[in-house]
Structures are given as C-alpha cells and as structure tokens.
Design a protein around this nucleic acid. Structure first.
Lengths: 186, 186
DNA sequence: TTTACTTTTTGATTTAGGTCAAAAGAATCG
DNA sequence: CGATTCTTTTGACCTAAATCAAAAAGTAAA
C-alpha cells in the first residue's frame, strides 16, 4: 500500500509499528460525486487517497460554493479542524472521481498517537507540511492576476487541473468560471 | 511565564517535564524594526512572544513587500518551513514594536521532541492550529470585498490592527494602502 | 521650531475581472 | 440514439479597486 511508503518517507517507523498502525486503516471504495462530509457535521474520518481526487468546499456568504482544497492520490484528506477538535465542520467534502481510499477514525488515530511516539511525530510532520502548502496557496493567489493564479494551480496540482470541473478550479483560485475559461484558451 | 500556561492549556505536561522544557527557551529583548530573518537565510529560531508584535513578509514578483502574517503576544513566531526543514526562507521576519520573546533553537526543540512524547504531541497540536488559522485567512479574503477583508482583520487580530502600519495591513489583506485608508474612514 | 522623513489621506483616471445572458459542447440516460 | 441536463465558451457591459500623483499629517532629528 502506498500509505506505508508515504509514512516511512517521513518517519523511521519499525516494521512492527508500521504493520500494527496499518491495520487501523480500512480500505474503502468511494464513487464519484459522493459526499463524505456535510457542512454542520463533524468529520469522523481521515482519508488517505490511493486513487482518485476529492475536494473540500464551503458555501460563502453570497451563496456560492467555494473550493477550499483539492486532494489527489498519495495525500491525506479531511476537514482538519473538525476532525481533530471534533467540532461541526464549516465545509463539505466530496469525491470528484471514483476513488480508493484508506480511512481511519479519530478514536483510532488518537489511540495510535498515544501508543507510538513515532506516530505522534508523523502527525506533527504532516501538519507542518499542510501548513506550508496552504501558505503556498496564499502566496500563489494574493496580489496575483487571474492567469498567475492559474499558473500556480498548474504547478501545485499538475495532474488534477485537467481532471476536475472548471468551476471548481475557478472558485479555488478566487476567480470566476468565465475568467478561467478565457485564460485557458491562451 | 505565559508560555507555560499556553503549553498546559494544550497538553497535560507533568511539572517536571514542563520545568525541563522551559529551560531550553531563552528570554530575549528585541527592538522595534529589528529584522529577525532575512530572505534566503535559514530560520534557526522559534519565538514565543510575551510582549510585542511581529510580522513575516516577502518580496513578490512585482517588487512589493507583502505581509504574510502578524504575530501577537501569546503566539509562536517563526518561518515554519525554513525552521523545520532547515531550508532557506522565502520570507523576512521583523518586530514592529519593542518586544520580549522566548526563543528556542531547532536543535533544542528536536531534542525535546525526541525526549518527550508530550512535547511531540504539543508540536502536532500547534501545527494543526496554525493550519486552521491560515485556512481562516484564506476564507476571510477569497472572494471577499476589500471592506470584508478588513472586517476579517479586525476579528482575527483585534489588538494588532491599530498598532501596526496601515500599509502592512493592506498587503496582508491583498489590497492597496489607498483602498484601506478609504475603508477606514467609513 | 525648522528640516527632513515617513505614513496616511484625498483626488482623478484606468483597468482587470466581475456580472448577466445566451449559445455551444459534453455527458448521461431512459 | 434523441432528449434532458450539466459544463464550458463567448459576448456586452459595468464596477470595485488599482494606479498615478500630490497634498496633508505625523514623527524624528538636529
């Protein structure tokens, strides 16, 4: 499983630890357009995407759905705050393709964090990586023209940009669908 | 020290652990306008602000300095990616007021992460909190009008908004100084 | 208390990208 | 397959905020 490689790349887990940890992840198949999380609900699972693409999005004050993030294969997907603080989420999560994921519950991951110092370290490292990625998004968007934003998108998500609806990308970048369409045919 | 309270609020450290951990933090006084980190250098310290305000900023492709983040009292301040990956930073850090901080080196914090499972947990929790805050900034800015952005600023940094230069706030929000000035006299 | 910066405000003008509307293309399905 | 629905493109128009420029206010320095 790709997840094992992902973990070992970041923390020197022993084989036993790794084997044990992986038993807590459950393989799931999820169909395109399936909603993993509704706004207002607490997110109970953390997903690792083996195959497929997902996104998180929210309904803004003007009644528009705004993509917050795209999740591609080889990445974790969750509503971070909701999952870890066990609070109602402000956002939705959905899959944009038929997907294969490995999921783990909050209870189980907390158990693993307690049990293994290495797992806790892994959690810290992943959280720092996520912070860096979001920060990069901000820099890629703020004070950038619409076409610079799209360039950021292509760089950050090279193999996602062509697989998901135009409108989802546009809202992710903070521009309108029409503008993105015009940029694309440059 | 406020730092102890900050830590205990998040993780149930034993008194001995806490005492030991705190010995690795060094108290420092830093003057207004002092640069803590230059672009291109590696950030070697993590700061906890007891008093004062700082900001991180970077030079964008149009030759403008853009504020990335404000750091107020009772918060950690660092160039996250540079500090943890030990890579050259893309951003600067400076203090905007005379400040009192507690600093710790990468070497020491790594030692503490290894030594105490609780410390590792603390690191994870802080990293998740930071992700949430940056994510909130994105939501506060994307597809929002200039005055909505300023409202976000007032909400997120109520006691910083009046203490720092207008231009620094404007670039933080992704608007021009002139626009922010006009918004303020509403 | 005058000189010299620095920061903020105000005004006039321009523009990137938003909005609205409708057509053209794709995809889904009985 | 045609029909219905969803997605993307194209066009015309408009507006929020950028840009440019300069004055005013605030701060420091001598």
């Amino acid at each position: 499983m790709e997840l094992a490689a992902y973990m070992i790349k970041r923390v020197a887990f022993s084989q036993q630890e790794l084997d044990d940890i992986l038993t807590y992840f459950k393989k799931e198949k999820i169909l395109k357009n399936q909603i993993l999380l509704q706004e207002g609900n607490t997110c109970h699972k953390l997903y690792f995407l083996e195959k497929g693409v997902g996104r998180s999005y929210y309904l803004n004050s003007n009644g528009k759905y705004i993509t917050q993030w795209f999740f591609g294969e080889g990445n974790f997907m969750t509503s971070l705050e909701s999952f870890f603080q066990e609070t109602p989420s402000c956002s939705y999560m959905e899959m944009l393709e038929d997907s294969i994921v490995y999921s783990i519950s909050k209870k189980d991951i907390d158990y693993l964090f307690e049990k293994y110092h290495t797992m806790e370290k892994f959690g810290r490292i992943i959280a720092i990586e996520m912070t860096t990625k979001i920060s990069n998004k901000l820099n890629g968007i703020q004070f950038q023209t619409a076409s610079d934003r799209y360039k950021y998108m292509l760089k950050e998500f090279p193999n996602i940009s062509t697989r998901v609806p135009l409108g989802d990308i546009a809202s992710y970048l903070g521009i309108t669908q029409e503008t993105l369409s015009r940029i694309r045919k440059k």
